[in-house]
């Protein structure tokens, strides 16, 4: 009973905030509701007994990515954005595509209607997932684990490369100083 209540409330938080993320005009509000939606998804992980995912979701998404989005919005925002429309002209066609796809996906989801968690699975899933996850990461998944660290390294270097300041001679060569040139 309490499981149903928690799932419904968390799903409602995630879905309503997600709709607000894609429809609101003020981008700062969008970023804040994105954090709320990600927190709702973390609650859904909680009802799935995925404790490590719950903590990682809070740490990485709510604490990292949502804050990064808010910073980006603040760095790139202008006051004129509040009066401009944030949705392009083809929103009706997009809505149609999404409605048809949603109908198909929900039809697929109906096929799993009889699949409830049985009692032994419930008892097993109540154990902490951290230890098996650690064993899996350094056992069967060792190669993907190392590859992911390489991807993170590349992303770090790429972010530094793209956001570094432009060189001074290069910006004066074009006749106009670079906007981020710091002059």
């Amino acid at each position: 009973m309490i499981e149903v209540a928690v799932f419904c409330s968390m799903a409602a938080v995630a879905l309503v905030s997600a709709v607000l993320v894609v429809t609101l005009r003020n981008t700062v509000h969008c970023a804040l509701f994105l954090g709320l939606s990600l927190a709702g998804v973390a609650g859904v992980f909680g009802t799935l007994a995925a404790d490590f995912l719950f903590v990682s979701q809070i740490l990485i998404y709510v604490g990292g990515i949502a804050v990064l989005m808010i910073f980006a919005v603040m760095l790139m925002g202008r006051t004129s954005d509040l009066t401009l429309r944030q949705v392009n002209q083809e929103w009706l066609a997009g809505l149609l595509v999404c409605a048809i796809t949603a109908a198909g996906l929900l039809r697929q989801a109906k096929g799993f209607l009889g699949k409830a968690a049985d009692a032994p699975a419930r008892a097993l899933a109540a154990q902490a997932a951290t230890k098996p996850l650690g064993r899996l990461m350094l056992g069967d998944f060792a190669v993907p684990f190392e590859l992911i660290s390489l991807v993170l390294m590349a992303a770090l270097l790429g972010a530094i490369f793209f956001t570094r300041k432009e060189d001074e001679p290069k910006s004066t060569e074009n006749g106009k100083p670079g906007r981020g040139g710091g002059t």
Binding site: V73, D81, L95
Partner: peptide, 14 residues
């Protein structure tokens, strides 16, 4: 689907 709708219709890159 909500995410797809947003990616199709939002104007700003963020």
């Amino acid at each position: 689907i909500i995410g797809v709708f947003g990616a199709l219709t939002r104007r700003s890159v963020i």
